[in-house]
Design a protein around this nucleic acid. Structure first.
Lengths: 335, 335
DNA sequence: CTGAAAGCGCTTACAG
DNA sequence: CTGAAAGCGCTTACAG
């Protein structure tokens, strides 16, 4: 005896409808059953008993779950829900479902979650993974279809879809240099973030190209981080601040306000990601936009191809583009 | 033949380790196996083969999934990730996992998702459901442990944990009345939202108590809604605006700025929820705070009790409290 | 076209 | 203490 909870099974329906369990299964799955009286009897019995198929048994039988797992560092960062929406759109269009897990920016938890999900999903989208390369490598060896967003590891044959941060970074620096800024500060993200590395590299190069100075202070991924670290940058006399993401930029904006500095009159601020609130801030945030939902959609597509077996690992990149709003303006003559 | 993907099973491990599948299972689940050479052999074989247990089969055998499903209206509203974090905290502490689904504010999709999840989870937390009462009633009859947040249906024996919006609403009106505001506008939420009904009722009563006028315009749940509808309220000459939630308030703030009105000098604005960005806005948003993570935690606790069978349906309420920040100030003499 | 039976991968009483 | 066997609920070849 198992049947925990005493839920009715195909067997109960079959007995009640006076047919075989095979017929029950066929009727309930829309398979070919000619005799309409049988169909009617089965439906009636199922309804009367309040039969609901045991999906776990069904998945087990099918040998697949039609479920995609998604691991993200922080659900509270509005960037990720947008990516998830993109994934969800593609996944549900295909009559599959999504299992979302939040690692809380912890690399260990991230690894644990992937392990957990891998047994219950047919594929996994690992968003902006923070885990070290060697862990990523062993996960890749588990053999479960896996796509990473915002992370590439040199020499690791992994399906990835990332943002080309450099493009947007170059545009941002160009924009600021054009406004007369000669010293730009960067509020860097979490050290384990691949995107942050990309952005630093993009900044270095763009700064060199335009002959501007770039100062870096490590902040993190949250508004608190931006709020906390901004003064360090000010101490270095920057006239413009680039932030790892919009949340960090938001924290920086708040701190500037508290310090009595006005944006963009005294200091210019540029974010990254273009999260939904960015356009509604005062001033509206100039930021480097990335196609978040598109990123998710593409990741899901890659996963589909991977699961279908007709794709080798590949690395894609989506461009990023500067969106100029109100938080950037001419540099003050001497700051 | 099934074994899609040719993954190794207990059977393969058993053969390789020269033991029975029962022993494999026992070793891998930390059950009593005395002979340490057997243990070693099994572990080695499992490692060599790269054996990973089929979790679906395990769940199937156990007759339970140790998974909690969560359905939310919109992952992009920062309110919900906070609630989810509260649920996740309680759920993962108990070695269970979370399956999150987003209904996109669609009542139909919501019903579909609950149906989908109910077959794959041991319990469901239905956050701020928008579906009509009759659907909620039939879902309740499915027999799966179910807890609703932010929704009570008169006469329906449902486990619910809600926010007592009235408390915060009264405090907000009191606060505004104390600042001299005599005409308050309310940017209402989605018509299907129970919380919105509660807030309207709280507003009505508080307005009567303090002898202030209250005007209502239906907005929605997003910043765009607030941005779009705000002018209607202004046309009615309100001096203060209450918003259904912080996102709506954010949209209203942006629109006010565009109209050249300053907050709180010209108009006061109060939000609801106290989402993480609220404190970082310019001006920082005065808002009615609710314990979002606590709401999630309590929902998960109720679900646990429900699953354990030692609880009848019950309705809990969490208080809400006004947090005064910079977006509210004295009423202008004539607005 | 429908029914009887096998089997998905695992765990756990039940024997030995 | 370990192994052989049953069985979780379902679907799908295989017979009839």
């Amino acid at each position: 005896m198992n049947n925990h909870g005493g839920r009715p099974t195909v067997f109960d329906v079959a007995r009640s409808a006076q047919v075989s369990i095979a017929t029950v299964s066929r009727v309930l799955n829309g398979r070919t059953v000619t005799d309409q009286t049988l169909v009617a009897r089965v439906r009636r019995a199922a309804n009367e008993l309040g039969y609901r198929p045991n999906m776990v048994a069904r998945d087990f039988r099918h040998g697949g779950t039609r479920t995609v797992g998604v691991v993200i560092p922080d659900l509270a960062n509005p960037f990720f829900p947008e990516v998830v929406k993109g994934i969800a759109h593609d996944v549900t269009a295909d009559d599959r479902r999504l299992l979302i897990a939040d690692s809380g920016e912890s690399p260990d938890e991230e690894l644990r979650l992937v392990g957990e999900l891998s047994g219950r999903c047919d594929g996994i989208v690992l968003c902006s993974p923070r885990m070290p390369a060697e862990n990523l490598e062993s996960v890749a060896r588990w053999g479960i279809p896996l796509v990473c967003t915002n992370r590439e590891v040199a020499g690791l044959p992994l399906c990835t879809i990332g943002i080309d941060s450099a493009i947007g970074m170059v545009q941002a620096v160009e924009h600021l240099a054009g406004l007369g800024h000669r010293h730009i500060g960067y509020l860097a993200g979490p050290p384990s973030s691949w995107s942050d590395g990309e952005r630093r590299a993009g900044l270095d190069e763009a700064a060199r190209t335009h002959g501007v100075r770039a100062s870096i202070e490590v902040a993190g991924a949250t508004s608190d981080d931006g709020h906390r670290v901004l003064p360090e940058l000010l101490r270095r006399n920057v006239t413009a601040v680039l932030a790892f993401n919009d949340l960090v930029a938001l924290g920086a904006l708040a701190r500037l306000r508290e310090l009595g500095l006005s944006v963009p009159a005294d200091v210019s601020v540029v974010g990254f990601d273009d999260i939904p609130v960015a356009a509604f801030l005062g001033p509206p945030l100039t930021t480097v936009a990335v196609a978040k939902a598109e990123l998710g959609r593409r990741a899901s597509e890659m996963l589909r191809r991977l699961t279908a077996g007709d794709a080798d690992q590949q690395q894609e990149r989506l461009p990023s583009t500067l969106v100029v709003r109100g938080s950037t303006g001419p540099a003050v003559p001497d700051a």
